[in-house]
Simulated scan of single mutants.
Amino acid sequence: MTHNTPLSPRPLRHLSEVQRRVLTIAQLRAHGVSAAEVNEQCRPGGPWQQILPGVHLLHPGPPTGEERLHAILLYAARSPLGEQASGVPAQPSAEQPHRPTYQDAMITGLAALTLHGFSAAPPLLSLDRIDVLVPRLRRLRSTGCVRIVRTAALPVPEQVTGVPVAPVARAVADAVADLVDAGVVRRLLTEAVRGGHCEPASVVRELTQARLLSRPHVVDAVDSLLAEGRAIAEERLYRMVREHGLPDPVWNVDLRLPGGPHLGGLDAYWPEQAVALELDTRAPRQDDDALWSEYARKREHLERLGITVVHVTPRKLRDAMEQQAAVVRTALMAASDRDPAAYVVVLPR
């Protein structure tokens, strides 16, 4: 605030420094600043400026990237009283006493990926528009530096430097929706997986829901993404066996009945214990049901032959490797209590 602007006793101490420089007309009114006084402060050459409808920047000159983000969230967030845009943000929570909660709004798209630390995403200040995700029925319009993105169901936001940000998979999908450069799309998808932000399946799920898999450059990028994700999952699998003291399996093999049909490929197999391990790197695409049926048939066939099948997902390997190692170890130890499995031929895949 400037020295000549009167304020009511309501304190601003629950706001961060940047949030004291960006306030809505409702917040200013709550602090005793009338509409006439706001207009006076925002006159040409004055100390304040209106940055978005109903949102004011309390200093002259261009806003910082952080100020833009908070202004956008103030414009888009629903107030606790159910007001439309430019209401007062909800009061801080016990977990973050200095951070007001922006209700029903979060940063998404390229800006969100920048906040998540993506090297392939541009700096905030280079973005002409910043995407903000809101519920589908909100009565808001895109304006200025704000582009409204609507969704039937808001994801749970992640807090990045006090800013609610869409999860990486959703942010990637919202960014890709407006990108036509195949190289940029591929780099963003690859960094999402290689950087450990999320699994390929979650990215493909969001792209599918956004109906983006009909675009050839997106399909090509997804194929590269799935190959990247599988390579990472396989490396984690090798590390699990090595670091958790499991006996060495035979890797990447096909099983066949002697003189009979092909039983299917496996990522790892322990012949003496008749324990098979398969990485589930399927992604939710249009042919997912057929792939799942094929996988289920293979598993049922192997188990009828007395072969124990351990099903592991890339996420489980990433988040709970020790637990997955324990599952495999238990299956190996239980082999002595089972009837001998049928004889199968093991071939390199």
Rank of each mutant, 00 (worst) to 15 (best):
Thr5Lys: 00
Ser8Thr: 14
Val18Thr: 14
Val18Ser: 10
Arg20Tyr: 07
Val22Asp: 00
Leu23Gly: 03
Thr24Val: 07
Ala30Ile: 03
His31Ala: 09
Ser34Glu: 01
Ala36Ile: 08
Glu37Met: 13
Val38Gln: 03
Cys42Leu: 02
Gln50Lys: 12
Pro62His: 12
Glu66Gly: 10
Arg78Ser: 05
Pro80Gly: 05
Glu83Met: 11
Glu83Asn: 12
Ser86Gly: 10
Val88His: 02
Pro89Leu: 00
Ala90Pro: 05
Ala90His: 07
Ala90Lys: 07
Gln96His: 11
Pro97Phe: 00
Arg99Gln: 12
Tyr102Leu: 03
Gln103Cys: 02
Asp104Thr: 00
Asp104Ala: 11
Met106Ser: 00
Ile107Gly: 05
His116Tyr: 07
Phe118Ala: 06
Ala120Gln: 10
Pro122Gln: 13
Pro123Phe: 15
Pro123Asn: 12
Arg129Ser: 11
Leu133Arg: 02
Leu137Ile: 15
Leu140Ile: 06
Cys145Leu: 15
Cys145Ile: 15
Arg147Gln: 15
Ile148Ser: 09
Val149Asn: 02
Arg150Leu: 13
Arg150Asp: 13
Ala152Thr: 11
Pro157His: 01
Glu158Pro: 10
Thr161Val: 12
Ala169His: 05
Ala171Asn: 03
Ala171Tyr: 04
Val172Asn: 04
Val172Ala: 01
Ala173Trp: 03
Ala173Glu: 03
Asp174Asn: 13
Ala175His: 08
Val176Thr: 04
Asp178Leu: 13
Asp181Cys: 05
Arg187Asp: 08
Leu189Val: 01
Leu189Trp: 00
Thr190Lys: 11
Arg194Met: 12
Gly195Cys: 10
Gly196Lys: 00
Ser202Cys: 11
Arg205Trp: 09
Glu206Asn: 09
Leu207Glu: 03
Gln209Leu: 15
Ala210Gln: 12
Leu213Tyr: 07
Ser214Cys: 13
His217Ser: 10
Val218Lys: 08
Ser224Gly: 14
Ser224Thr: 08
Leu225Gln: 03
Leu225Cys: 07
Glu234Ser: 00
Leu237His: 00
Glu243Arg: 11
Gly245Phe: 05
Trp251Ile: 13
Val253Trp: 03
Pro261Phe: 03
Trp270Lys: 08
Ala274Gly: 08
Ala276Arg: 01
Arg285Ile: 05
Asp289Gly: 12
His301Phe: 12
His301Ala: 14
Glu303Leu: 02
Ile307Tyr: 03
Ile307Gln: 02
Val310Ala: 02
Leu317Phe: 13
Ala320Trp: 06
Arg329Asn: 10
Asp339Trp: 04
Pro340Phe: 12
Ala341Cys: 11
Tyr343His: 14
Val346Trp: 04
